[in-house]
Amino acid sequence: MEKALSELGQMDELAVMESPIHDLNAAAKLLSTIVYIITVMSFDKYDLSGLLPMVLVPVLMYQIAGIPVHTCFYKLRIVLPLVMAVGLFNPFFDRAIMLKIGTVGISGGVISMITLMLKGVLCLMASFLLVATTPFDSICAALRKMHLPRTLVTLLLLTYRYVGVMTQELAIMTDAYHLRAPGQKGIHVSAWGSFLGQLLLRSMDRAQELYSSMLLRGYHQHFHYAPGKPFRAKDAAFLILSCLCFILLRHINVAELLGSLIVR
């Protein structure tokens, strides 16, 4: 558990690798990611066949970025079940048969469940790719350029940093616990209350001290984000092409198109 969390806190290292995707301007990537997520979300809840080709986008991007797709699922393994759980109840509410494969009828609920799960996973993959290929500072700088409120962006950056602090404290505490409770798997329910309380207090203490360390070094309500990559012609090209591609995928049902080609 703490390993899974601390890996989340160590994304900075992936973000400074080199690849055509890493080399793109943060704002271009951010916008493209937002458009992708909106496109994915806009698919009808029964439109599984339309959504499927959208899988190609992240898969291709991960390839170009040189980040194996499984690192995303591995690093996000604690969040993934939550995303997957979203559509879990649909099969119970929506029992109308939509599709028959042989004699087995598939209800609308099952299809909408799969569609929802896929949407969740795709959004997760896209956001992960953004964070994994862009230093978090640059993302924040891009958000500022888009005139998001300063306080909000600073909050975002600090939250990102504090996740690291929390996970370190969590690691120290679980180690201390296991050293005195040998052979026990996980942490006993009776200790959860005090464990969580302590974790919160300790993280707050450390956050407080980190914050004073920032103040002592002249922090004055705004971060000086590293300038990041400039917005060049190729960033514009990437942004326009990728958005066009998403819109095409949204409006042309590739699966159906291929199907009709083969039938003919």
């Binding site: 900075d12 230093p135 450390r206 980190l210």
Partner: peptide, 12 residues
């Protein structure tokens, strides 16, 4: 600071 962990908060 007494504890350097609390002093360094940037990635590098």
């Amino acid at each position: 600071l007494q504890n350097s962990d609390n002093q360094m908060f940037m990635p590098t």
